[in-house]
Simulated scan of single mutants.
Amino acid sequence: MSGWTIIGAGGFIGGRLTRALRARGEAVYAPSRDAKDLFERDLGQVFYCAGLTGDFAVRPFDTVEAHVTLLAQVLAKARFERLIYLSSTRLYDSLGAAGGREDDMLAFDPAAPRNVYDLSKALGENLTLARSEGRGAVARLSNVFDLAEDASGFLPELLQEARHARTLSRDSVPGAVRDYIHAEDVVAGLLAMADRNATGVVNVARGENVSNADLAQVFAEAGWTLNLAPDRPTPQAPVCATARLRALGVAPRDPRVLLREALRAPDFFRG
């Protein structure tokens, strides 16, 4: 093997992957967006982590550039051993409760503006699986969270606020659910995919949906109040299959347990 390449090493997952690989003594190439030698050197094992999440709606063309355009150039021009493309379990959303398996036939409305994310990720998956000469695999990540103070997202931002206030409020209904997976478990899953030469698509997910009401209960047990919006019916969400991930030896931890441990730490609340 000729080392590792992380495309998107400056991002949330890419940075953690880079640190994890270097911690185990691996040589890691983390090219910048405009790296001149990307197509001149042997990239070895590639993790393609480049992408947009929260701001894809206001940056649709950058979203396509990150999810598809650069990937196509890497597949067409670069020298590499294997490539794992980071996608999203958001691709199951339009399937509702019927979705969540890696072999599901996906469905998208091409006229829906939000689907620039889904469609570009789906095209990235297609290129990886069909145009890599058998050297590509896809990791579909669910809702990744981290308990670090600089992390972003619904759950991390709740925790950051909870360090200074005992009453929290969110304009989100109790019945809304997410499949939360800790960033460390994501990194473990991605490394397992690479080390064990996983093929096809693998859901990197916990495999269990946690509702806002569940989170409110955890906060309440630890001495906080989480106020939510009045409940209303919400579309049924897919439940991600995780047999392929678990067959690689990765069993993601329960986010409620991690949240409970964080809230009960002696130095957590600062007032």
Rank of each mutant, 00 (worst) to 15 (best):
M1S: 14
G3N: 11
W4F: 14
I6L: 01
I7P: 05
G11F: 10
G15K: 00
T18P: 03
R19E: 15
R24G: 12
E26M: 10
A27H: 11
A27Q: 12
V28P: 02
V28Q: 01
R33N: 13
L38C: 02
R41K: 08
R41C: 03
L43F: 06
G44W: 01
C49L: 08
T53D: 12
D55A: 14
A57H: 13
V58R: 15
D62A: 12
D62S: 11
T63H: 07
A66I: 03
H67G: 07
H67S: 00
A72W: 06
Q73W: 11
I84N: 03
S88G: 01
S88F: 04
T89H: 09
L95S: 03
A97M: 10
R101I: 07
M105T: 15
A107R: 14
A107C: 14
F108Y: 08
D109M: 13
P110H: 03
A111T: 14
A112C: 11
P113D: 08
D118A: 14
L123N: 13
T128Q: 06
L129Y: 04
A130T: 14
R131G: 07
R131F: 13
N143T: 11
D146T: 05
D150A: 03
A151R: 04
S152V: 13
G153F: 09
L159M: 11
L159E: 04
A165K: 15
V173Y: 02
A176F: 09
D179Y: 03
E184Q: 10
M193W: 00
M193T: 02
N197G: 13
R206Q: 13
E208N: 04
V210S: 05
V210E: 01
S211Y: 03
A216Q: 10
V218P: 07
F219T: 04
A220T: 10
E221S: 14
W224K: 02
L228Q: 00
A229N: 03
P230S: 09
D231N: 10
R232D: 11
Q236H: 13
V239R: 06
V239G: 03
V239C: 09
A241Y: 09
T242E: 09
L245A: 11
L245P: 00
R246H: 12
R246D: 12
V250R: 05
D254M: 08
P255Y: 01
P255L: 04
L259Y: 05
E261T: 12
A265K: 14
A265E: 15
F269P: 10
R270K: 15
